[in-house]
């Protein structure tokens, strides 16, 4: 058991480290001169050489690459990713300012997506009407095929401009959260729902379901007591992976709805070539992703006794 946890934690740490290193290579080593990136491209020729040198020294660009790397890694370990070039504020502060807003959006979207997916799977499994099942099962593939910017704009048109139920932008209060939330959750719910519908159907035809029928259980009882837990296991893994998509999806959603957040900050940081900020965001996203998947990996054995048995068997008796 301990070995399993160590292994999974180690993997999570590796992912974060790898993200940091790849980002470092891409942003600081590969371009011709990292100093150039720090200035506005339009003004780059008008900057005197001594200023450039001073900047290079400030940032440590004149040192060997490996020293730069170790220096940055050391600082990153203590939570210091340097200062944003644009605002001059520490990267960590800049990120923590907008992080809650994105996390609330992404987490709420994940919850909503999982709820939608389970709703679809439950209706499709529980219904005795073939037409209803077909209708509900057709929904996920539809949801996947509508891009976020399109559904976002449609929702703005209908619920904000036409009906005026929700504000069209900003991030004050729960009302402003609804539209971005739904926009973000719907395409993510699609694949989870597809997977769930399939695994609910497979599990509903499993042998132990027949046993439950024979015990005298009712249809709803079987779905809740027997099918649900067995069918939910694969969805848990996919939900963890999906969380990464949500952060990526937030770039578009936050832009469309003009919300502040990591997504919008990423977009600005890339546009303005704010290298330290981009590096910080990449590492942060990787860390979030690794953490969520670590949690999923650790929850799975709790839900599945077979997995648990395989793990405890590995521990020294």
């Amino acid at each position: 058991m301990l070995r399993y946890v160590t292994l999974k934690v180690g993997r999570a740490l590796f992912v974060v480290w790898a993200a940091f290193t790849v980002t470092f290579v891409l942003l600081f080593v590969l371009p011709a001169n990292p100093v150039d990136l720090l200035f506005d491209p339009a003004e780059i020729n008008s900057i005197p050489a001594e200023v450039r040198e001073r900047v290079a020294e400030n940032y440590g660009f004149n040192k060997p690459v490996i020293l730069q790397y170790l220096d940055r890694l050391g600082h990153a370990l203590t939570g210091d990713f340097g200062n944003s070039v644009q605002s001059g504020r520490p990267v960590v502060t800049a990120i923590t300012d907008v992080l809650p807003s994105t996390l609330v959006l992404a987490a709420a979207a994940l919850v909503l997506a999982v709820l939608i997916a389970f709703g679809i799977a439950l209706v499709a499994t529980a219904t005795r009407r073939p037409w209803l099942r077909d209708l509900v099962e057709a929904w996920p593939s539809g949801a996947v095929s509508v891009p976020v910017f399109l559904s976002g704009i449609l929702m703005l048109q209908i619920f904000s401009f036409r009906l005026g139920w929700f504000p069209s932008f900003g991030d004050d209060g729960w009302r402003s959260l609804i539209l971005p939330l739904v926009t973000l959750a719907v395409p993510v719910a699609g694949p989870i729902a597809q997977l769930l519908v399939r695994s609910f159907r497979t599990e509903f035809a499993a042998g132990y379901v027949t046993t439950s029928w024979a015990k005298g259980a009712t249809r709803s009882g079987i779905i809740v007591r027997d099918v649900f837990r067995n069918a939910a296991l694969p969805a848990l893994t996919i939900a963890g992976v999906t969380f990464g998509n949500l952060i990526a999806g937030s770039v578009i959603t936050e832009t469309v709805f003009a919300r502040k957040g990591i997504g919008r900050m990423t977009q600005t940081a890339i546009n303005t070539l704010d290298v330290p900020l981009v590096a910080g965001i990449v590492v942060l996203v990787a860390a979030t992703f690794a953490l969520i998947n670590l949690i999923v990996d650790l929850i799975c054995p709790v839900l599945d006794p077979r997995l648990r048995a395989a793990l405890t068997a590995g521990a020294p008796a």
């Binding site: 499993a206 042998g207 132990y208 027949t210 046993t211 439950s212 027997d226 837990r229 067995n230 839900l303 599945d304 006794p305 077979r306």
Partner: peptide, 8 residues
């Protein structure tokens, strides 16, 4: 082998 619920 398949007729008992594996997680209960």
């Amino acid at each position: 082998n398949t007729s008992l619920n594996p997680v209960k």
